[in-house]
Amino acid sequence: MVGVGDLFKALADPTRRAILDELTDRDGQTLFELCGRLTVKHQISSSRQAISQHLELLEAAGLVVVRREGRYKFHHLDTTPLHDIVRRWLNPAKDPS
């Protein structure tokens, strides 16, 4: 199980948030595709190795799931870990009556 601290650490970095944004827009991307989209849309020109390290941290936090197909790795967004945060701090609005 991933701790809340690990989750917040993963979300703290702007590059990792941009990666999650890209996976929200188009799920199931390879490292090559993500690097290209980050460069064009976010002006993030990190190396593939740096983006790969960000992806590993996101995977460790449970926010990214990897699917292998041959020699390719496809990265998918998994928002399940965010549900614990929502349940912890956001309660449904209570009827004032």
Rank of each mutant, 00 (worst) to 15 (best):
G28A: 11
T39G: 01
R68Q: 13
L57G: 01
L38G: 06
K73Q: 12
C35S: 11
R68H: 12
E56N: 14
A60S: 13
A61F: 14
A61M: 10
T30L: 11
G70K: 11
V66D: 06
V40Y: 10
R67E: 14
R48H: 13
F74K: 14
L38M: 03
H54T: 02
L55N: 06
H54C: 03
I51R: 05
E33Y: 12
E59M: 09
G28I: 12
R68F: 08
Y72K: 14
G28W: 14
L58G: 04
L58T: 02
R68L: 06
L31A: 03
K41I: 02
H42Q: 09
E33R: 12
G36V: 06
H75L: 08
R48T: 05
L34P: 03
G70V: 02
V64G: 03
S46G: 04
H54V: 04
F74Q: 00
R71F: 02
A61W: 15
F74T: 03
H54I: 00
R48C: 01
Q29C: 05
S46C: 09
R67C: 05
F74C: 01
H76A: 03
S47E: 08
L58R: 04
L63T: 01
L57V: 09
L34Y: 04
Q49T: 07
C35W: 15
E59P: 04
R37Y: 07
A60C: 10
T30K: 11
C35Y: 14
E33G: 14
R68I: 09
S52W: 11
V64T: 01
Q53Y: 12
L55E: 03
S46F: 04
H42K: 15
Q49D: 07
V40F: 09
L57F: 11
Q29A: 05
H42M: 10
Y72A: 03
L31V: 04
R68E: 13
